[in-house]
Structures are given as C-alpha cells and as structure tokens.
C-alpha cells in the first residue's frame, strides 16, 4: 500500500482485510450436523439384535425352564399381553406423568436453590457441602420416611423424586456459573450490565452447558428414584406405575412380565436420553464450538 490519498489507501486496506477474512473464515458447513443420521443408528441397532440373537440361541439350544429363563419370544408376547390388558399403557402413562411433573418441580426448585447458592457466598459455604452430599445419598433411602410423613399418596413419590433430582440440578447451575471465565463476566460489567442483566444476558447463558449437564443427571436420578419408590410403595391412594407393575408381576411369579417391564423402563430411559437430552446438549455445544461435528 503506497501513501496515496487516504480514500484509496483505506479501500485497499478494506479489500485486503476482506480477502484475509475469506481465507481464515471457517466454512459454516463444518459445524452443521451431517444429515447422515443413519450412521449413528445402525451400530446400536446391530448390537441389540446381536444380544437378542445370543439370548434366543441359548434358549433354543439349552432349553432352560421357561418360567425362570424365558425366551425372547416369551418376553415379547408378555409385552403384548401386558399392553393388551391395559396395565402397561396405564403404568407407562402414570410413571411418565409423575416423572415429568416431578422433574418440572425439581427444575424449578433446583434452579432457585442454585441461584441462591451462587448469589449468597455464605449460603454456598454452609449448604454447598450438604447438597453435594445429598447427591451421593440414594434418594430411595427417603421412601420409608416419606411414607410415614405423606402416607401412600403421590406426595411420597414426588418427595422422593425431588430429593433425587434437586441436588444435581442445583449443583449443575452452581458449577456452570462458577466455571464462567472471568473475562466473560468482566465484559458484562464493562458493557454496563446491572446485576439482573448480568445474570440474564451473560452468566446464565454462559453457564448453560453446565446447567444442562445437571438437568440430565437430575432426570436420571429422578427416573431411578421414581422406579424405586413405585416398587417399594404400592397400594393406598398411589397410582399404578411401571414400578408397581414390576412388583405386581413379581408377585404373580410372572418372569416374562417382569423382564418385559424392565425392558420397557430401559427403552423409555433410552428414548428420553437420545430423543431429548442428547440433541439439546449437542446443539448447545456445537453452537459454542465446544465439540466437533461428527
């Protein structure tokens, strides 16, 4: 660039800069998800088929007692029978409703507690270790106490779900916000954000990956707690959930029915994991350039 009149010089600079940008810009295609979802589906599908084949082959060759070691087809027909009798759909609906509603309560409570712990350092120092400790305590341990407090009502189930999920969600938010790089926070302050705006536009969005990880773990704990509570606490005013179905099939010594219920619970867990949490987390991380596209 020569020392020409500055109009020309400036436009030269801008043109050069533009060319340099074009060289350095990552193509936006690099972060788009490849439309080839099939490559993510077939390996686990083959794995499941393989396991089912091994199971069925064993039953066909060894001919074990069908009441103790049912075959794949026995279990499949048990799923069909439980479905047709209306017990499985009813239990599914009850458990999903409870799990979903309990999880929503847990999100609200966990988020409020998380924000309090973030905002009040004394509170965090006092209650932080207790809440981390509660994460380690299996929330089934609360079932006997909950039955004594609330009786055989849905309140017992919700209480156990909350005890399972709230600590994970609160901890996820606390960790997420504490891991926000200090320069991001400083920029928020420099840009003139007040306390509320700083949280709303800077800290919470910045903490989202940690918060989502907490939600995911919270759901896993909530779902496990729910199943455990439904197995232990049955009868009374309690609705009939998947755990209750499991327990009822055991009492009927119906092993195909028990396994059918277990597989249903497992399948539901996978569907929610793969269908809800994985895509959300993936999108959030991809947007921030925190993970490579497959």
């Amino acid at each position: 660039m020569s020392k020409s009149p500055d109009g020309t010089a400036a436009s030269d600079t801008r043109d050069l800069e533009h060319r340099l940008d074009a060289l350095q810009l990552l193509p936006s295609g690099a972060v788009r998800r490849t439309p080839n979802w099939w490559s993510g589906v077939w390996p686990p599908a083959v794995a499941v088929l393989l396991l089912l084949t091994i199971w069925q082959t064993y039953c066909a060759i060894a001919q074990p007692r069908p009441d103790l070691y049912p075959s794949v087809f026995d279990v499949a027909s048990a799923i069909g029978a439980n479905w047709d009798s209306g017990r499985l759909p009813a239990a599914l609906l009850t458990s999903l409703t409870r799990g979903g509603l309990g999880f929503v309560y847990a999100i609200i409570l966990g988020t409020i507690i998380g924000f309090l712990l973030v905002e009040v350092p004394l509170l965090r120092r006092a209650f932080g270790p207790i809440i981390s400790g509660l994460q380690v305590l299996p929330s089934v341990a609360w079932v006997p106490a909950a039955i004594l407090w609330f009786g055989l009502t849905d309140a017992t189930v919700y209480f156990v779900i909350l005890m399972g999920a709230v600590p994970s969600i609160a901890n996820g938010l606390v960790d997420g916000i504490r891991q926000v790089p200090s320069h991001i926070r400083r920029v928020g302050v420099v840009l003139g954000a007040g306390p509320v705006a700083l949280h709303r536009y800077v800290l919470f969005p910045a903490a989202l990956p940690g918060y989502l990880a907490g939600l995911r773990q919270g759901w896993a704990f909530a779902w496990r707690s729910l199943m455990a509570a439904e197995i232990i606490a049955t009868g009374g005013k309690l609705g009939f959930g998947l755990g209750s179905l499991l327990q009822q099939n055991r009492e009927l010594a119906d092993l195909p029915g028990v396994l059918a219920t277990v597989l249903t619970i497992l399948a539901l867990g996978i569907v929610i994991e793969v269908g809800v949490f994985t895509p959300i987390q993936r999108r959030v991380l991809l947007r921030r350039g925190l993970t490579e596209a497959r």
Binding site: E17, L20, Q24, L25, L26, S28, V31, R287, R288, G289
Partner: peptide, 11 residues
C-alpha cells in the same frame, strides 16, 4: 451471522 468460533483472531 457467524459464531465466534468460526471467526479468525483478527475478525
């Protein structure tokens, strides 16, 4: 419309 991780240091 680019996200920060798509931009070069100068950009």
């Amino acid at each position: 419309d680019k996200l920060p991780h798509q931009l070069s240091g100068g950009m």
